[in-house]
Design a protein around this nucleic acid. Structure first.
Lengths: 217, 217
DNA sequence: CATGCGGTTTTTGTATACGAAATCCTTGAC
DNA sequence: GTCAAGGATTTCGTATACAAAAACCGCATG
């Protein structure tokens, strides 16, 4: 057997898609037989996922799909706001001509998807939009950190998109972000990108509160 | 044998203190016998260190002490500036009375150590100063991310402290940061803390340039 | 003298084995 | 009927074994 790397991605996918639910226990032996490998590579994959916060490892107890409480989710949105804000600030100063085109294209794709009303397809266009900004900041490490949090918060982002008028408001925010970056205004780009993320946390808060539960996705 | 957790910290210490030098290859078998354990816990420790960026794992090639080039170091300082800036902004709004006292104490300890002229002891006081701010931001996740980068950049921070007038300038920056946080001015706190970090990158740049080498510590 | 090739050796990645800790389940006492 | 104690069982953490890939080395060759 020669494939521990893929194991991690497979498990991550199963968690993000909800195949394994938050709080669920991940038995090493079960996963091993499920993937046709021994426990060793499974343990390695679990440890990697633990380092990204996807699973929680309790010593001598086992691995559990991390279920973030409301507080933990907000904390991550705040952290992401800091990272994305810096991405925006740097992107405004460093974006290349080619990336300018990509940014506009990605934004227009978001507008197009939003018209169709399907929040899922909007989500993917939105994801691409942020990826372009990550690239444009020309800081591979910062981009990677932002990307990781982005992935980790994926289930919660999708949730808040269903709040009333959230998509149209999100689009308006994107518009202002694009303008700031293209104008090379790093201060405005940072402020707007940061607020864009923090607002998502706020809307998620509203969304969760309206159902009276802190454990979601 | 029942101690894989400690292995990670021991290895980390050996890397930060320079016992294992950047670029050096870390043989699993050697480490195993060195610590009196088998390869399994060593591999787990190496993977954990890889997730924090302390070591680089090349598939089928082995583990190497990560040697950051100049570009990679600057990238991390920029990312850290984003995280610390957010820490400062949040701390200005959320710091408790007890933490206010701690902050002032930590700052005064820095002043005291700076008088003695020993940049090493100043470094530790400086470390504590930042730890207090991490706590005061009341965001455990953000604090942990900042702490990790802080540890990772430790060797480079120490280096730039030796630049001319760096310690006294650093102190002046701390003073302004404390004032902003105590005044509850999140905007100023963020700006000053961010600049404080970015300046470190700049000074490190100067320091490295004056020796004509991009690989340090 | 540099260089490419083949075999040997080292080292990683995975599988399996084993001891220890935690959980579960039975059983007995109150 | 409830609850606690003790052993059986499960599962984690580590050690060891083995297969495969890469590094190493000597030798021959241009």
């Amino acid at each position: 057997m020669r494939r521990a790397e893929g194991l991690r991605d497979q498990l991550e996918q199963d968690i993000v898609t909800g195949h394994f639910k938050p709080g669920e226990r991940l038995d090493e032996q079960s996963l091993a037989s499920r993937f046709g490998v021994s426990r060793t590579p499974v343990r390695e994959a679990l440890m990697q996922l633990a380092s990204t916060g996807m699973v929680e490892l309790q010593p001598r107890r086992g691995a559990f799909v991390a279920s973030l409480g409301f507080k933990e989710i907000i904390e991550r949105f705040e952290t992401m706001a800091a990272l994305e804000g810096m991405c925006g600030a740097l992107a405004a100063r460093r974006i290349t001509d080619e990336q300018r085109s990509k940014l506009v294209e990605a934004h227009e794709a978001c507008v197009a998807e939003a018209k169709d009303g399907a929040s899922d397809s909007y989500y993917y266009a939105n994801e691409r939009f942020h990826q372009v900004i990550y690239e444009a900041c020309h800081n591979a490490y910062l981009a990677e950190q932002a990307r990781q949090l982005h992935t980790r918060l994926k289930p919660y982002r999708r949730l808040q998109l269903r709040a009333r008028h959230r998509v149209s408001n999100s689009l308006a925010e994107h518009q202002k972000i694009v303008e700031a970056i293209l104008a090379g205004d790093s201060t405005k780009a940072e402020q707007r990108l940061r607020d864009h993320i923090l607002i998502q946390g706020q809307r998620l808060n509203d969304f969760i509160s309206s159902f009276g539960s802190a454990k979601v996705a």
